[in-house]
Write a protein that binds this DNA or RNA. Sequence first.
DNA 1: CATGAATGAGAATTCATTCAT
DNA 2: AATGAATGAATTCTCATTCAT
Lengths: 195, 195, 195, 195
Amino acid sequence: MTLENASPRRKELVGIAARLFVETGFDRTTVRMLAQAMGIKSGSLFHHFRDKQEILCAVIEEGTQRALAIARRELAEADPRPRARLHAMARAHLETLLSDRNAHVAALYEWRRLDAASRERLVPLRDAYERLWEQVIDEAIAAGIVTGDAFLVRRFVLGALNWTVRWYNPSDTVGEGGRTSEDLARALVAMITRE
Amino acid sequence: MTLENASPRRKELVGIAARLFVETGFDRTTVRMLAQAMGIKSGSLFHHFRDKQEILCAVIEEGTQRALAIARRELAEADPRPRARLHAMARAHLETLLSDRNAHVAALYEWRRLDAASRERLVPLRDAYERLWEQVIDEAIAAGIVTGDAFLVRRFVLGALNWTVRWYNPSDTVGEGGRTSEDLARALVAMITRE
Amino acid sequence: MTLENASPRRKELVGIAARLFVETGFDRTTVRMLAQAMGIKSGSLFHHFRDKQEILCAVIEEGTQRALAIARRELAEADPRPRARLHAMARAHLETLLSDRNAHVAALYEWRRLDAASRERLVPLRDAYERLWEQVIDEAIAAGIVTGDAFLVRRFVLGALNWTVRWYNPSDTVGEGGRTSEDLARALVAMITRE
Amino acid sequence: MTLENASPRRKELVGIAARLFVETGFDRTTVRMLAQAMGIKSGSLFHHFRDKQEILCAVIEEGTQRALAIARRELAEADPRPRARLHAMARAHLETLLSDRNAHVAALYEWRRLDAASRERLVPLRDAYERLWEQVIDEAIAAGIVTGDAFLVRRFVLGALNWTVRWYNPSDTVGEGGRTSEDLARALVAMITRE
DNA sequence: CATGAATGAGAATTCATTCAT
DNA sequence: AATGAATGAATTCTCATTCAT
């Protein structure tokens, strides 16, 4: 599941690329911009990555991997009751999405830019993450605190969460009415659960 | 509210551009692709639009305008009870988003590509549309069928709906488990309302 | 010597073109700019002129013709003594050059943009004008008020005069230290004559 | 006084660009023509210069700098008497203008094509050159060998000299009646001085 | 005469990528 | 590893010109 090269230097470069991809979009981020942000010249970039695609692929892998790791950790630490587990997942998702505007955002918003080969490689990883959500939502429905079609609920919930990056700026707590990402997680869970 | 140039020819071109922008993304849609899809040569495009930006601007305006018109019509025809009005808005939103994968999708997903001037021009239009949602959600909260922070509910609901274009293909009813966009609207309303 | 078409409408258009060619340069003046300044659409321009070259040709012809006419008039009216005739020529030259920043400037500064055919057509006209200068300078040398190689004197004098359009703005009498174009003519004659 | 980038490669390219700008004019010299003359592909040009403007700016800077350097050298070596100094300046000016049809011609004839920023940067350099002329002409007037308004004399003299590039071809000594540029300098000085 | 739409050749510029040093 | 120079294909956009209406 891990890629050919996971040196710390490379990890650092991937983080920088992730930020640029989120700020500017993959298409509009030039190799020269990436290199400059990394403190090297554009020619040197190709010693670390075969091509621009590979950078995107690495970013998306990193983003999904982190999302998966954090979700697992939060679930492991969470109260085993369904509502708490739902909350843990929402919190984890928002954390990877908003806390450092990191690779997870790129994973979601630049997925379409992956070429076929990369996509194929990354689908299992993404599915592993989604399966976590599937479980938690199934449990919530089984417990009667959420009603409806599990598939649709999952899609709607992820949509609601993913869309936050379009309107929520975690560093601007005043502009956001003082809402923290924790508030967001709680509000979302409240919105879809009853009793 | 309509802009500089509204010839029927232009409208037709805007429709074609909308489709390409949704299929391929604004950045990856070249002027030549647009021209070819329109049946003209790339130079001729600039007879109708000053630059590529202006095409995007026209597409987004058209998309938001249509969304606004359809939402108003649905609200006017809907049962005046809060849940019905919520449902009408969701149905209207999904219709403009999914029925012909039209300009409304571009309006949502390519908004960031607008330059400052266009953005400024279009913000009021977008706000008018969002105000419709505001009203309907306020009514639902007042009626006690939805609970929570009206602002967050609106953002979550719009996120859930907007994200549908990423996973729902209305022309593939089998792959989508036979779900129609009407089903989606109903499910969303069910998910967030109680009693 | 006159061109196929000398309608007053055409003359007017030529005048407008002359102004634009001087302000912006022939290469940078687009057919659309010309048309707009003329109050018509670019397509219509080609009812009046075969192509852009023909406009330039007409402008240069007009400019040289006017310069020639005015020079002849001034010489006819001038005191027959050599210095007075020299002065009359300088005054005439500066008048066509500066008084209405007209076609004569274009004739001098855009001559290189003429195609071979136009150039051939206009060379005799330009030579007729230069011959006037030749006479006047020959007379001045014969009279001993100017010394030197007649050919070089003529080139130097014309250079000095033609270059005025690069630094002298006749409508800004303050910025120009209150110098009129009449002052310029006098100063030039004074500079090259003795006794 | 020198600018951002003065690599020898760049200097060489600037020289080639100067020649093309003089032969063809800035507007009609395409980037492809420049690249071909430089033996590279058009894309590579932008490795050395940000845009076409910057090439022009570099050419004009180079041209004025050389003119300034040569004028200073000639003045330093010249007999200190006013006529000799005038002659030295004329000779220097014609040398930079005619000897290799170099950047100084472009500096004079394409100045208008500079954008505002470049112009601002180059004005002091140009002024430094003109101040040399100012001094020499002031001295000549003070010595009584030239009469008139120093400002106008300077403008006329520079006009006469600058215009030579329009009619004088130094490599065609037959067509030019065997006149060398040294002859031109002498004739000009003779024309404007007395006794 | 005038127009609006269209054209096609070419303009400057961008950019991922290569490669000798 | 890193770099600077170069590439070539593609991109947006310009513009003189044509032509049906």
